[in-house]
Design a protein around this nucleic acid. Structure first.
Lengths: 198, 198
DNA sequence: TACGGTCACTAACGAGCGTTAGTCAGCCCA
DNA sequence: TGGGCTGACTAACGCTCGTTAGTGACCGTA
């Protein structure tokens, strides 16, 4: 048999393996030597495909939080009544956390390791998402279709509920990402006291 | 004025400052020198009050997960119908995550840094809590008082919902731990499709 | 065949980590 | 007054980390 050939190392593959290991052991708990090892390469070779370990974390956080906001605005722009908007917003947020588990785990765990300005940008995006979702809930409450004492509390609950999917979801489990997202979007409506149509 | 006297360093205070810093920066992200600095002491002096950095993490995880189970069994043993049991179980779990934020953050973040047998013991306790809560939900579904497609999914949702309180709760916020716990226990009942009595 | 670019390598760095050893000041109690 | 315990200190250890420098093998192109 011929010599086994290693897959070519690209910046994309470096980021991918970093993502897996950061999600598993945390940013500080992951050594560059482990990322290199997973790629079948020595540590300094990584620097042909990245600028620093920190840059890996920053790019993960940056693209992920930007994606969350883009998702939200996409479904929000479709319009509709508060229950429809909330359902779609929760659904897409839940779905992302099932299909992008590693990204979510890293963002929610290693934010404190970020420096400015990336950290501030991330918090701003998080706040924007939070306030936008809260506005949807508040509107539903005003229209009498949602029933919660505190829209802020319900917003926290729904967001964190979806985030937590990343902590237990498995592609090999009994439910697909779509199924879980649907169920969780239903939970979101229940949390705000909106009775299902069916 | 006289010389300022430093509070006496005790193993309890070491653990307390470790808890704060672990929760803030993560286990691997916290250096013993930072814990020592917070106590106004040099790093090696810590070893008069602890055995190792790892032991700090282990004792945090151990006492916290044991406390969660003790809480659950206490309210479970009071008996009652599934809605009552679920409400109380969610309430005490939520309450703990508001009053023991740091512990919860560390347990949910740095579990992967544990070695056996502590890690296995922690997972076993987590599974026990998970299965016990799921059993309550399943019973409610069988009796027709809860309405969920998957008790497992609802159980995950409720547990993680409560856990997430640790991520945003503040003692200085508008709601007390008791108020948040009550609201979240209500969310739990809504998630399982159990209409409120009032 | 000669050239230039790509990229993995070895070697080495400075810094920081957790931890241990050994010293010494302060205190309680006989 | 003296002895022993407590506990903080300095110094130093071995190790691992992220990162840089410099070398050379490979490969497509002229």
């Amino acid at each position: 048999m011929g010599a086994t050939v290693r897959d070519p190392v690209t910046s994309h593959r470096v980021l991918d393996h970093a993502l897996t290991l950061f999600a598993e052991r945390g940013y500080h708990g992951t050594a560059l030597s482990e990322i290199a090892g997973a790629l079948g390469v020595r540590t300094p070779s990584l620097y042909n495909h990245m600028r620093s370990k920190h840059e890996l974390l920053e790019s993960i956080v940056d693209t992920t939080t930007a994606g969350v906001l883009a998702d939200f605005h996409a479904v929000h722009d479709e319009g509709g009544e508060p229950p429809d908007v909330l359902y779609r917003a929760a659904r897409v947020y839940a779905h992302r956390h099932a299909t992008h588990r590693r990204e979510a785990l890293v963002v929610n765990r290693d934010t404190s390791s970020l420096d400015e300005p990336v950290r501030g940008a991330m918090q701003a995006r998080r706040r924007e998402h939070e306030h936008a979702l809260r506005a949807v809930i508040s509107e539903g409450v005003e229209r009498g279709v949602f029933h919660v004492e505190s829209p802020a509390l319900a917003s926290f609950a729904i967001r964190e509920l979806c985030v937590s999917i990343a902590r237990w979801f498995s592609e090999d489990g009994p439910l697909s990402a779509d199924q879980v997202a649907d169920q969780y979007a239903g939970f979101a409506l229940r949390i705000v006291g909106c009775a299902p149509d069916s």
